[in-house]
Design a protein around this nucleic acid. Sequence first.
DNA 1: TTATTTCAAATCATATACGATTTATAAAAA
DNA 2: TTTTTATAAATCGTATATGATTTGAAATAA
Lengths: 233, 233
Amino acid sequence: MILNYHSIMKNNSKISKQQYAYKVIKSRILDGRYPPGYKIVIDQLARELRTSAIPVREAIRNLEADGLIHFKPYSGAIVTPFNEKEYLETLSVLAVLEGFATAISAQHFPADRINELTEINERMKEALNDFDFLMFGNCNREFHSLTYQYCNNHFLTENIKSTWNRLDRVRKMGAATKPARAKKSIEEHEVIIDMLRGARSFEEIEAYVRTHKLNTVQAFLEEKNDRELRNYT
Amino acid sequence: MILNYHSIMKNNSKISKQQYAYKVIKSRILDGRYPPGYKIVIDQLARELRTSAIPVREAIRNLEADGLIHFKPYSGAIVTPFNEKEYLETLSVLAVLEGFATAISAQHFPADRINELTEINERMKEALNDFDFLMFGNCNREFHSLTYQYCNNHFLTENIKSTWNRLDRVRKMGAATKPARAKKSIEEHEVIIDMLRGARSFEEIEAYVRTHKLNTVQAFLEEKNDRELRNYT
DNA sequence: TTATTTCAAATCATATACGATTTATAAAAA
DNA sequence: TTTTTATAAATCGTATATGATTTGAAATAA
């Protein structure tokens, strides 16, 4: 591309102010600086970001669509309270969607990408050894993204992606991965890899992947149960 | 509630201008006045609605989250083109979600609401007799809403609802219901009612409801196939 | 005291005004 | 002719200013 006056001017790698505001607010929610229940005051934040209120408003609208913020007219935007029930509900939906998506994807999965899955799973083992749960979570997401990548249903993958984004908040807060579960999870991934290689039936794959993901919910509930029992003895 | 000065003043049943703009735009998309590909010009619409541009902008953001509009910076908002592939993709996802939701719901479904389902199904028969496909579609949605109402997973029902909303556009355009399919659909609803009454197994219910909904996709594809064959002969 | 009303401060919602970007068109150069 | 550059019109993006609504605290009445 030839650079004329206009194309030079625009290359200051600008993003719009509302995108900027969006990123700032989102990162602050994710890293806990804006904890659940925190009230975001538009004017105040606009001053801090050296913008007017409008870009901040629009950013907040987008975050509302992501489910990170709850907005009430004339009252303000508060960070959606962390809700254990909703967290488990979301995980269940994800299990159903990914189970279905992976089963479709398996029918078109190219043989030469199978070893990528093995590699990712190896990285998960390393992460677990290093107790690097953030890395573990990232690889886990990467693993599943690849398994359902060939499901050939764009709307489905978008739905899954936005569901993951909702969970991100909890994931980064660290409440997600339990060491005991992590080990089993890696083993189950190996089974999934074998199923993809072996071209197993649609129903079999869907059921296994769904169960694999629901096991995380189960683990969470059991761990919580133990914790509560301990508190009473 | 006691009425003081403020509460009197606010009772002019006002909705915010952006909500107003949202409703106007949405209805125009649904009734076809803004066809797929139509470019919505903010300033122009703002003048027509006697507001400033900002409420219109925000309404457009919301519609983008609904998937009705596609927005490109500095370029404008265009009504998302009707895309047959995406329509079928969305229906498939809905089949999976509703199958799962209904199976859970069945476990807690109260016996005294079963006959409501029968009533709705009767209304569908009438609608079909009158060739009132809009009514038919509405009842169909009502029927399924009730079947999965007791699934006890708020995130799941929200996801289903927003998926329905995406389909609304096509539904109201009338491309959805084929008479031949409609009749079978009613019969399948009767089977579903029996299953809810008979407390059948989770797997059985999930599979049946999913298939029921996927049959609509199938019918669409077959009808399309026929149509195309006719064009070549 | 307790409930109600009034009032002011904080904050959101919108209008107006202006600058920024894209897009299409016309002019100029190769 | 074809490609590139300049220009103008349309439209979007944001700042500033002002009106509208809520909220909470103080004042008043029961």
